[in-house]
Amino acid sequence: MTSASPPVRSSRRAALRTFVEGALVVGVGGAVAFVRTRGYSDARDRPLVSFAPWESVVLHHAARRITASDHPEDRTIPTADELDVVGFVDAYVARMPTPMRRDLTRAILYLEQVAPLTLGLMSRFSELAADDQDRVLVAFEASPVVLLRGAFVALKSLVFMGYYRDARTWSVLGYGGPWIGRAGHGSHGAPPP
C-alpha cells in the first residue's frame, strides 16, 4: 500500500520543473522568433488585404519556386511576379473563414521558420537560395507528418490558382479558357461557336 504524500511532493517538483522549462522555452523561443521575424518589407505597390508583410514575403518566394518555368529563358511564359500571384492569394484568403485563414498562417510560418531547420538550414526560407528553397519545398511536400503534407497541398493549390487563373498561362497548356467572351460567343445562354 502506498502513502499519499510522495506523489504530492513529486507533483510539486514536476510542476516546478515544468514551469522552469516552460519559461525557458518561451524565453528562448520568443528571442528566436523576435530575431527571425524582423526585417520583412513587402515590396508590392498595392496594400495587403489579408496578409501581414512577412506572410506576403514568404508566399512571394514560395510562389516563385512553385511556378518556376521549365523554360526560364522563354519570356512568353509569365512569372508569378508578373501575374501578381501573391496579390491574388492575399485577396482570395481574405474571404476565407477565420479558422482556415489561421491554419494558412500557421502553414506559412512553418515554411518560413521551421521547414528549413529540418534540413539543417539555419536561414529563413525567404532568405535561402532558390535551390535550397526547392529542397525545403520537396521536404515539405513529402513530410512524414500528414498534416504538414496537407498544408503544402493547400499552399500549392492557392499558388496555382493565382497562376493558372490567368489567360497568359493557358497557352502553355493549350487551354482555350472560358467560352464566355470568346468571339462570336459573348453572352450567357448563347450557343457555342
Partner: peptide
C-alpha cells in the same frame, strides 16, 4: 487547369513540364 495543377504531383519546372501535356 487549376484543378489539374493541384492534382499533379510536385511543383516548379517538372510540374510545368507535366502541365504541358494537359491536352
Amino acid at each position: 487547369p487549376i484543378g489539374t495543377a493541384a492534382m499533379l504531383p510536385g511543383f516548379g519546372a517538372p510540374h510545368m513540364r507535366a502541365m504541358r501535356d494537359y491536352n
